[in-house]
Amino acid sequence: MTSSPHIVIVGAGVLGLCAAVELRRRGRSVVVVDPGETNASAVAAGMIAPAMEAAIDAASPAHAALLRAGRDLWPDFAQAAGIVLARRPAEWRGGDAAGMAARMRTLGFQARLDGDRVVTDEDCQVDPGQALAAMRRTLGEAVVAGRVEAVARADDGWRVTTADRTLDAQALVLATGADGAPAGLPEAARRLIEAIQPIRGQIGITKQSLADHVVRGPGAYVAPMGPGAVVGATMEPGRRDTAPDAAAGERLLQAAWRVLNRTPGTLEVEWRAGVRGASSDGLPLAGAAPGGPGLFMALAPRRNGWLLGPLIGGVVADAIEGRAASPHARALDPGRF
């Protein structure tokens, strides 16, 4: 079967779906090819947390501004896509609380210091399962199942081949996470994808509620997730395996109890692991890709895929439409490498 959408997006994680929703909002014909496996976007806490992330990473002012800009796009995007955006305080406990508060304030974020606790109202959260499902509902039949076997230049765009269909499109967006490059990709784009570093992350989902807002501290965080909670998270560069690690889970639980300042108790925990991608400078690859016209990337967000999803979707859509780039597009340009 052959069809001809204007744009084909390969990958149905947060970046691929955010780009598709944004393009659909602009009236574009889009098809998202979903390989079907559980992706790293589902193995996440859904943090939209510029203040905490910037402080934890000792981000530069420019990086903090990028994270803030990503957060600021979420209310409108969530409403358009049917995503529930939870606005709750976020708290840091233990460790260098005064230092955390100072870093947040220096970067322009509001923070309240109370002993060994820092509280900010700058951050929010989505439930990744609900958010992914909402975007898929918004896109409807535009999301198709299949694993891309090859891509190739066509006369006026790109040809994407799966086991049961061929898609000819004017533009091709690679949102393939930490996966390898599809066969047939131009060499310059393939090299960029092969340079993406895999980072394994493990979280635990509990049936029991542990906190009514996000609580972070040395070694762990705890956040509401549905009727229960999510405990996370490891960051293990260079690993691609996704089988949960019992020892890593136990370390996370012990750190979580310390963060909560509670005596360890019995929990039912479902451990999950996923693999994210990161570029060498820690920033995503978003926009026009090397290798010829009509090729674009939405890749390598490290641990900020949910936070930056709508911003990256907008950067990719602007590039496809030839619009003036947003103020943050240059920092994400795949051509910087």
Rank of each mutant, 00 (worst) to 15 (best):
residue 123 D to P: 05
residue 13 G to Q: 03
residue 313 G to F: 01
residue 119 V to S: 12
residue 55 A to N: 00
residue 220 A to S: 15
residue 228 G to F: 11
residue 192 L to I: 06
residue 178 A to P: 14
residue 164 D to W: 11
residue 162 T to I: 11
residue 74 W to G: 01
residue 63 H to W: 07
residue 233 A to I: 08
residue 98 A to E: 05
residue 277 G to Q: 04
residue 179 D to F: 12
residue 221 Y to A: 07
residue 186 P to F: 09
residue 35 P to T: 02
residue 272 R to C: 05
residue 290 P to F: 05
residue 216 R to M: 14
residue 7 I to Q: 00
residue 26 R to I: 09
residue 77 F to K: 00
residue 151 V to C: 06
residue 107 L to W: 00
residue 289 A to Y: 06
residue 328 H to Q: 14
residue 238 G to E: 15
residue 175 A to N: 05
residue 170 Q to Y: 09
residue 266 T to L: 06
residue 252 L to Q: 12
residue 125 Q to I: 02
residue 44 A to R: 04
residue 183 A to W: 14
residue 117 R to K: 13
residue 19 A to W: 00
residue 141 E to L: 09
residue 322 G to V: 12
residue 315 V to D: 01
residue 177 G to Y: 05
residue 51 A to K: 03
residue 25 R to M: 03
residue 293 P to Q: 01
residue 138 T to A: 09
residue 272 R to G: 01
residue 277 G to E: 03
residue 200 R to E: 07
residue 35 P to I: 02
residue 250 E to V: 14
residue 183 A to Q: 14
residue 23 L to T: 01
residue 230 V to G: 00
residue 302 R to M: 15
residue 49 A to I: 13
residue 284 P to L: 12
residue 71 R to I: 02
residue 151 V to G: 04
residue 31 V to A: 11
residue 308 L to P: 09
residue 267 L to P: 02
residue 233 A to W: 09
residue 196 I to K: 07
residue 272 R to F: 07
residue 174 L to T: 06
residue 278 A to V: 08
residue 241 D to Y: 14
residue 1 M to K: 11
residue 131 A to M: 13
residue 162 T to Q: 12
residue 198 P to A: 10
residue 126 V to K: 10
residue 300 A to W: 05
residue 40 A to Q: 03
residue 77 F to D: 00
residue 12 A to E: 00
residue 148 V to Y: 11
residue 125 Q to R: 15
residue 295 L to S: 05
residue 312 I to K: 04
residue 310 P to L: 13
residue 311 L to W: 12
residue 189 A to T: 04
residue 144 V to P: 01
residue 259 V to G: 04
residue 27 G to I: 10
residue 317 A to R: 13
residue 15 L to P: 00
residue 211 A to L: 08
residue 59 A to T: 03
residue 230 V to P: 02
residue 289 A to E: 03
residue 192 L to K: 04
residue 110 Q to F: 13
residue 184 G to H: 06
residue 110 Q to V: 14
residue 271 W to Y: 13
residue 46 G to Q: 10
residue 169 A to F: 12
residue 299 L to F: 08
residue 251 R to S: 07
residue 70 G to Q: 00
residue 321 E to H: 05
residue 103 R to L: 04
residue 119 V to L: 14
residue 213 H to V: 00
residue 302 R to Q: 15
residue 181 A to K: 07
residue 144 V to A: 03
residue 54 A to S: 15
residue 248 A to T: 07
residue 191 R to F: 10
residue 198 P to V: 08
residue 271 W to Q: 09
residue 210 L to P: 01
residue 298 A to H: 02
residue 61 P to R: 12
residue 87 R to D: 07
